Computed example of a mutant assay.
Amino acid sequence: MNNSVKFITATALAISSLSSQAEVRINGFASIVAGTSMDEDKSLYGYDDTLSFKPESLFALQVSSDLGDGLSATSQIIARGENDYDATFEWAYFSYAISDSTQLSVGRMRIPFYRYSDYLDVGYAYTWVRPPKSVYNLTFSTYDGASLLYTSTMGEWDSSLQLIVGSFEGSVNVLSDDDPAKLSNMYGINWTVGNYWLTARAVYMQADASISFVNDPDPTQQLNQFVGLLGAIGATDAANGLLIEEDDGSFLGIGVSIDYENFLIDSEFTRVEVEDTLIATQNQYYISFAYRFDEWTPYISFEHRKDENDDDYSAGLPTDLNLGGGPIDVRAAYQATLTSQETENDVFSVGARYNFHPSAALKFDYTKRERQTSDASVLSVGLDLVF
């Protein structure tokens, strides 16, 4: 019995057991997305120049149970095309209503980085085929810990204040797609206010970040060798400036959404920083405009991302170190290592959503990414459903 079958069987047994004790509700959502790169020998968002359904398609079930007296349990099972539809737990947590306005949750939950974090995989919840990738670019989205949510009203404004604490252990994408990472002592605050047409939010997260490069695709492990060289010549600060070992990491996000009559405007700005490390500081934003014409909602959006690395400890490094094989410009090599993590791109998207069914939407999207080194574009069609 493979892992997916074991997983589904165990889930079915758990649901059967719970149903005799509490009210169980099962909801689901799915996205079937087909796309192709419009440029030969170039890829974007996992698509090359052959039509594919795998990179962004998914199927998910969410199981929630009201255990009574303010206690509930929620889990989300998701199978992604990019992972050959192997089913995994995305969420699994308990919630307790301390009062009508305060809720405590513990377990594995979504980190509230973005405006649509809670609906990140629910394509039906937003207008685009995909959230703007220049901003929604972190390769992890969940944490293990606790969340305290307080909701209130301030005149005509609804307020939602969330405090989180916890940790993350998994894989991120720095030098490879599978760099082992650990975020400890994670804490943050997420505040959202809104009225009938305007929503604004601000979020700040902090954590001690550690990332290993044991899966560096370079077979010579060039970075690790270079760090060893820096240590051997006594350049401890420079070596530590490349490593990511319990360094201060932070995330700042600000967003505004407008839904006025038939006009829709979404915009978010985020900043990601891991101090004194190889990781470049990321600054990115997007702004999106849409207009509803009955069942049709066409949209356009613009994204910008710029990664810069100013943690430069190269000033005292030698430019002509001779190890027997000729002089080595260590300073230039250090600066090149930092520069390798820098990037800048603009992304333009145009598309439309068609609500042909109360529980389904068909979407069309053309996206072009412009970089200094190369451009790439993708054409995609998606079907989003909730059930």
Score class of each variant (00 low, 15 high):
residue 113 F to P: 02
residue 213 F to G: 00
residue 341 Q to A: 01
residue 218 D to L: 01
residue 189 I to M: 09
residue 63 V to A: 02
residue 349 S to T: 14
residue 210 S to G: 04
residue 170 G to A: 01
residue 183 L to V: 03
residue 235 A to P: 04
residue 90 E to Q: 12
residue 52 S to M: 02
residue 218 D to I: 02
residue 271 R to N: 14
residue 184 S to A: 10
residue 99 S to Q: 01
residue 107 G to V: 06
residue 263 F to V: 13
residue 23 E to I: 13
residue 291 Y to L: 04
residue 313 Y to N: 12
residue 168 F to L: 03
residue 347 V to W: 06
residue 354 Y to T: 06
residue 40 E to G: 12
residue 153 T to K: 11
residue 202 A to V: 15
residue 307 D to Q: 07
residue 198 L to A: 03
residue 87 A to H: 01
residue 314 S to D: 03
residue 62 Q to S: 11
residue 337 T to S: 07
residue 62 Q to K: 11
residue 70 G to Q: 02
residue 99 S to N: 02
residue 330 V to T: 03
residue 110 R to W: 08
residue 352 A to W: 05
residue 61 L to S: 11
residue 202 A to I: 14
residue 231 G to E: 08
residue 369 R to M: 14
residue 74 T to Y: 02
residue 376 A to S: 13
residue 325 G to V: 13
residue 276 D to R: 03
residue 196 Y to C: 15
residue 138 L to H: 07
residue 334 Y to D: 03
residue 101 S to M: 14
residue 350 V to F: 07
residue 256 V to T: 08
residue 63 V to R: 00
residue 157 W to C: 04
residue 46 G to H: 04
residue 204 Y to Q: 07
residue 114 Y to V: 02
residue 331 R to G: 07
residue 45 Y to H: 12
residue 181 A to I: 01
residue 156 E to K: 09
residue 347 V to A: 09
residue 316 G to Y: 07
residue 109 M to Y: 02
residue 369 R to L: 15
residue 94 F to T: 09
residue 333 A to Q: 15
residue 71 L to I: 12
residue 229 L to E: 07
residue 351 G to R: 00
residue 224 N to C: 09
residue 89 F to K: 00
residue 79 A to K: 02
residue 204 Y to R: 07
residue 122 V to E: 06
residue 174 V to C: 00
residue 277 T to M: 00
residue 291 Y to G: 02
residue 37 S to C: 00
residue 232 A to G: 11
residue 160 S to I: 09
residue 238 A to M: 05
residue 235 A to Q: 02
residue 231 G to C: 05
residue 123 G to M: 04
residue 326 G to T: 07
residue 315 A to L: 15
residue 295 E to N: 14
residue 357 H to L: 06
residue 299 Y to M: 04
residue 285 Y to T: 10
residue 119 Y to N: 15
residue 96 Y to I: 09
residue 372 Q to M: 12
residue 347 V to Y: 06
residue 169 E to W: 12
residue 174 V to P: 00
residue 144 D to A: 05
residue 217 P to E: 05
residue 149 L to A: 15
residue 375 D to S: 05
residue 17 S to D: 13
residue 71 L to W: 10
residue 332 A to T: 11
residue 40 E to I: 13
residue 338 L to G: 03
residue 127 T to P: 07
residue 158 D to L: 14
residue 144 D to I: 10
residue 259 D to A: 13
residue 344 E to A: 13
residue 222 Q to P: 13
residue 163 L to M: 11
residue 39 D to W: 06
residue 137 N to Y: 13
residue 310 D to F: 12
residue 278 L to Q: 00
residue 126 Y to R: 00
residue 287 I to C: 05
residue 96 Y to D: 08
residue 201 R to S: 14
residue 150 Y to P: 10
